[in-house]
Write a protein that binds this DNA or RNA. Structure first.
Length: 185
DNA sequence: CCCTGATTCGC
DNA sequence: GCGAATCAGG
């Protein structure tokens, strides 16, 4: 599907309204990725949006040249049934986007006041004794999150099934990565 | 990890 | 012109 006038128009509108590229992509249709949106935005020279001051100093050489695009996923021959109807009725596809994006803000904060007990602030995973692993019992698929004092006899590893993306299980992976990486050393 | 926009370059 | 892959940053 190409960029028809109305699609471009909608793109401009949404972009100016401050929607993110992925949100716009979702709004435009299934076959549109956020990359497509961003690419078009740039071609239209629509950058800068509602930004009075250039907060983002465009100073990135980007010397990429080595990686070549391996291969295309084949032509997504989306033979859309566009039987000459350029202006189809599009009231609003009921944006199926429950995910909060953009500011990563937690707009919905469930109430917790019904809890009679104060949840333990330092909540940890309880690992049953028979699930606990010693150093020598670790392998590629066990969570390597250490628990306890390494010098103590009680020291053990989480041992849950670890993610493919890291050395920890889901619980500890989040704990390890959430917002604290990419720090200079 | 999630996400954002920016850039390059084969198509 | 298009957009996937990639980069850089939060």
């Amino acid at each position: 599907m190409g960029w028809t006038d109305e699609r471009v128009e909608l793109l401009k509108k949404l972009w100016m309204e401050g929607l993110s590229a992925s949100q716009i992509a979702g709004e435009l249709g299934e076959g549109v990725t956020r990359n497509a949106v961003i690419g078009k935005v740039h071609r239209l020279k629509l950058s800068a949006r509602a930004k009075p001051a250039n907060t983002t100093p465009r100073a990135r050489p980007a010397p990429r040249q080595a990686p070549r695009r391996p291969a295309g996923p084949g032509t997504v021959s989306a033979s859309s049934s566009m039987g000459g109807m350029a202006s189809a009725a599009k009231p609003r596809p009921t944006m199926p986007r429950p995910q909060v994006m953009g500011a990563t803000a937690l707009a919905i904060t469930p109430e917790f006041e019904t809890s009679p007990y104060v949840a333990p602030a330092t909540q940890e995973l309880f690992i049953p004794e028979d699930k606990r692993l010693s150093l020598l019992q670790l392998n590629e698929h066990t969570c390597k999150w250490p628990i306890g004092d390494p010098l103590s006899k009680d020291f053990y590893f989480c041992g849950q099934h670890s993610l493919e993306t890291g050395p920890y299980c889901e619980f500890h992976s989040r704990r390890a990565y959430h917002q604290l990486d990419k720090k200079k050393r």
